[in-house]
């Protein structure tokens, strides 16, 4: 919730980043030869830069409160781990095949998402369910829907 009278520093920082992104994209349009490809993105870029400047100036002159949440609780290492596991799965896919990379990512994310204690039952059942889910989806996509999922080159 916005807190009155406070400058939205985070929002202003994002707006500043948007101005930089806009300028970089604007520079890129100078390499385009056809005016048809330039007119629309340039209009949008000018709009984005204008709104960002207005937001920053408005926040300086009449601060109406920070609408930023920050990172509210929870484990940051687990968050980073999840993103790393998903990205790892995407990058390993062409080398290890979809099945192996998917299975590895599933198991890592399962470990990251486990907040209760590991009992002997869970240690046996959860990986088996994971294996069934991965194989099930693999079968659905690769065999039934004929999606050409990457295969491991060494298999």
């Amino acid at each position: 919730m916005p807190s009155d009278g406070q400058r939205d520093i985070g929002g202003m920082a994002v707006a500043a980043v948007m101005i930089v992104i806009g300028l970089v994209f604007l520079w890129d349009t100078t390499n385009l030869v056809d005016s048809d490809s330039v007119v629309f993105p340039r209009t949008v870029i000018f709009g984005m830069i204008l709104f960002s400047i207005m937001f920053i100036v408005w926040n300086f002159l009449r601060p109406s409160g920070a609408d930023t949440e920050g990172v509210q609780g929870g484990s940051t290492p687990r968050r980073i781990g999840l993103v790393a596991a998903m990205l790892g799965c995407a990058f390993l896919m062409p080398y290890t095949g979809f099945l192996l990379s998917g299975l590895a990512a599933f198991m890592v994310i399962m470990l990251l998402a486990m907040h209760e204690g590991w009992t002997r039952g869970r240690l046996i059942v959860y990986p088996l369910i994971g294996l069934a889910v991965v194989l099930g989806f693999y079968g659905l996509f690769a065999k039934a829907l004929l999606v050409p999922l990457p295969e491991a080159p060494f298999l």
């Binding site: 999840l82 596991a85 799965c89 990512a105 990251l112 998402a113 907040h115």
Partner: peptide, 15 residues
């Protein structure tokens, strides 16, 4: 349980 739900959804988003 979350330990199964999160990896299942993550896997579904990737595939």
């Amino acid at each position: 349980p979350k330990a199964l739900l999160v990896p299942t959804i993550a896997f579904m988003t990737v595939i």
